[in-house]
Amino acid sequence: MTDPLIHARQVTLAFGETPALRGADLAVDEGEILAIMGPSGSGKSTLLHCLAGILAPDSGEIHFDGRRIDHLGEQERSTLRRDSFGFVFQFGQLVPELTAEENVALPLLLGGAKRAAALRQARSWFPKLGLDGLEARRSGELSGGQAQRVALARGLVAEPRVLFADEPTGALDSLTGEQVMDLLVGCAREQGTTVVLVTHEARIAAYADREAIVRDGRATSLSGRLT
């Protein structure tokens, strides 16, 4: 069996006096879609933030692709996020001042790509996600489902190794949410992207290959691989 792509060991993190993670262990294999479930306040989002290098844990280790990432500096973690990770969050992640295509191109622009090339690459995602004709809209002019699809395009445009999705359908109705999940899973499988999906909805978690449950800041894996 190969080493997991992401491996967290005994991760703890407290916000002030409140412990959010108390020794969480989790392994994510390359190419799998893992759902992290758990009641609200269980620490599932915090675990995702730690895995994605957004938050630095108080103790424990996090390895990504054989490299320890939990004690990296702010600069290195930014670069890691930009080059290796993509993100789809519940809402508010698009830059309201920018058009949809500029938002999608943002990771490429931040990585130093030429503006014209970045926008061209960004635009190529719009038909794939059923967003034709919305390239010049700003986030305020998009419906919830459209905004999430734009966010998905942005999360995948730089061809990341891992896509982190935190309640990506949390602000959507069931039908729209399922469309977004269909596209997310479809694109991730096509690109071979590993997905870490945080959700409290079983129907959304059912899109994953496997689920882990976080209770009281600890993670348990309950089911094996689907295939």
Binding site: A202, A206, Y207, D209, S223, L226
Partner: peptide
Amino acid sequence: HLQRMRELT
């Protein structure tokens, strides 16, 4: 249950 839900999905 989740296994069955995955199949149905």
